[in-house]
């Protein structure tokens, strides 16, 4: 009885050996590209003095949500500086940005594909289930095998872990577009590409943005785990504090993660609804110009106008 065993693990190992051996050029390329991207972003975030970055973040905050959020952002980021975690936080932010951008760039096309074709959807769905339920630490093993210790395996594991909601919500958003409007597009002779660009994507945008928000949030949580494989930054601090049972370091690094998370979440969520102060400002400017021009000609045609 005990003798019987299905050696799934060994098969996976054989597979990985084979892949590392024959596709090493590919992994080398990915490693170079990701490392280059990370270092560039990291340089941009770390080299300026902290108040420049806080100023930029403040601008983003006020454009996305307004004055209250600006105040919260400045206080939070200053706290990170005060805890002496600024550089680590910027490293983490760079990891999150690179990983999320790549994850989003991969997940949205996949989501579109899944929405367009039932066959693709039935293949992609179980893969996503697999990626979402597999314990996150497990991704670190192949990432380590292929890319060696450093930021790159952290980024790769983060991308794989964080992609799923991007794909799912893109598919959901596109499938949720009113079929009559899509039908209207084709009834007037629009090509599938035009329908996608002019109807499906714009109307699915709020859902897709919710997916992007989720991707970024998951990236942040995974980046910390990636500290285990040498991705450095706040993740490494947390791993150190864990091994030393250092509550001071642990709470400070943890708090820095929380502050980053809240900032990223609120900014992307505001972009998703499309009701940011900046877009309202633009809309106001836009509507003023033609409205004032057409005031003379605007005769009330139907009095029962419903203003929403």
């Amino acid at each position: 009885m005990n003798e019987f065993r299905i050696p799934v693990g060994s098969w996976v190992e054989v597979l990985f050996d084979f892949v590392t051996e024959h596709f090493s050029f590919f992994f080398d390329f990915v490693r170079l590209a990701f490392a280059g991207a990370f270092e560039t972003v990291d340089y941009l975030l770390v080299s300026p003095p902290f108040y420049v970055i806080i100023g930029l973040a403040g601008l983003l905050a006020v454009a996305a949500r307004g004055w209250k959020f600006l105040a919260g952002t400045v206080v939070g980021l200053l706290l990170i500086v005060g805890m002496n975690q600024w550089e680590n936080a910027m490293d983490t932010l760079a990891l999150v940005l690179v990983a999320s951008v790549i994850a989003i760039a991969m997940s949205i096309p996949l989501g579109i594909l899944a929405a367009k074709s039932k066959a693709a959807s039935s293949v992609i769905r179980p893969v996503l289930d697999f990626l979402q339920t597999m314990p996150a630490f497990v991704f670190l093993i192949p990432a380590l095998l292929f890319f060696r210790v450093g930021e790159v395996p952290g980024i790769v594991a983060t991308i794989i872990f964080a992609m799923a909601p991007g794909v799912r919500l893109t598919e959901l958003g596109i499938r949720g577009v009113d079929p009559e409007i899509v039908e209207a597009g084709s009834a007037f002779g629009a090509s599938p590409g035009r329908i996608l660009r002019q109807i499906q994507l714009p109307l699915a945008l709020p859902t897709i943005m919710a997916g992007i928000n989720q991707v970024i949030m998951l990236s942040l949580s995974m980046v910390v785990i990636a500290g285990m494989v040498g991705a450095g930054a706040l993740g490494a601090e947390i791993m150190t504090s864990l091994s030393r049972i250092d509550i001071v370091l642990g709470s400070e690094a943890g708090l820095a993660v929380v502050i980053l998370a809240i900032f990223l979440d609120r900014v992307t969520a505001a972009l998703g609804t499309g009701k940011t102060p900046i877009s309202r400002f633009i809309a106001l400017r836009k509507s003023r110009a033609p409205a004032s021009a057409s005031v003379e000609t605007a005769a009330p045609v139907e009095p029962e106008l419903v203003r929403l």
């Binding site: 009113d178 209207a184 084709s186 007037f188 002779g189 629009a190 090509s191 002019q198 714009p202």
Partner: peptide
């Protein structure tokens, strides 16, 4: 078929199907 729809036959829908944006 797209060509026919562009030039020869258009449609009005029950729930208007306007592009809301």
């Amino acid at each position: 078929l797209r060509d026919v729809r562009r030039k020869s036959i258009s449609m009005v829908f029950q729930h208007f199907a306007l592009l809301p944006h």
